[in-house]
Design a protein around this nucleic acid. Structure first.
Length: 263
DNA sequence: ATGGCCATAGTGTATGGA
């Protein structure tokens, strides 16, 4: 089974890229972020025609998350919930879909903007509330296994940045953010990309400016954390740079993790 | 050269992204 996450930076603009990518990869579950459209504009019919069930939570202009599940493999969700019951939030950043034996979450973590910004305070509070929510969820008997996929807006370690000196202590790399990433892992999750040997300078986001992609001046901020109860089934993980090379790309590349599961 | 790009809303130019 292939799990994936992709910040598409406007689903309206990226629909053709997404459709081509789904046809090429046929991933089983996909977490999408930054839809930047309202639910009435979600291209449900187009994606269903490709063979995917769609669950989504959008708003005008900003944010917006979705989960796609392949009809002919994992099938439809048993239940879906949007947002965090422990955190009032007008911003649409979280959606969870339950499947047989697996709770799959698409998360769009706040960016934070700058360490002295109110947005940074919001980011830390948002993550703390997510932690508490996931702790409760993961310990509930109905949750057999948890996968947290999305744009975390956190580069967990220096090797996840193209220039550790430049990024030291900066937004996305601050000690408080990295500590929170580790707290999420400590819930009993595995950073699936790092469960495998990877090429140095592997990133999932590159700035549109400064020829970021051509210079590979990027960050690894998109992650798929897999329940350690599924650790033995992990069979691979990669960042697919293909879509980032197209005309008018998203600034993020999709991340894919493969499981030999269900057995 | 400490900024460069892109999407949105919407028709000027601001905000947000990371």
């Amino acid at each position: 089974m292939k799990l994936a996450t992709w910040n598409v930076n406007s689903l309206r603009v990226r629909l053709a890229h997404l459709s081509d990518w789904l046809n090429a990869t046929r991933v089983d579950l996909l977490a999408l972020q930054e839809l930047k459209l309202t639910d009435d504009k979600f291209p449900k019919a187009e994606l269903e025609a490709l063979g995917y069930h769609c669950y989504f939570s959008g708003q005008p202009t900003y944010n917006g998350v979705a989960i796609l599940s392949r009809m002919d493999s994992i099938g439809a969700a048993l239940e879906v919930s949007c947002g965090n019951p422990l955190f009032e939030d007008e911003q649409k950043r979280l959606i969870r879909a339950r499947f047989e034996g697996l709770d799959f979450i698409s998360a769009y973590f706040p960016n934070g903007q700058a360490l002295d910004s109110d947005k940074y305070t919001y980011k830390l509070r948002w993550i703390d509330a997510l932690h508490d929510h996931l702790q409760q969820l993961r310990e509930s008997p109905a949750c057999k296994a948890l996968v947290l996929a999305g744009d975390f807006n956190i580069a967990p370690e220096d090797i996840d940045t193209h220039d550790p000196a430049k990024w030291a202590g900066q937004i996305l790399c601050s000690a408080a953010e990295r500590e929170r990433f580790q707290r999420l892992v400590a819930l009993g999750l595995v950073d699936s990309f790092r469960a495998f040997e990877q090429a140095p300078k592997s990133f999932s986001w590159w700035d549109y400016r400064e020829l970021g992609f051509r210079r590979n001046a990027g960050l690894r901020i998109d992650h798929i954390l897999v329940d350690e109860r599924l650790r033995s089934t992990l069979s691979g993980s990669l960042i697919d740079k293909g879509p980032r090379k197209l005309e008018k790309p998203s600034d993020h590349a999709p991340v894919v993790t493969e499981l030999a599961w269900p057995a």
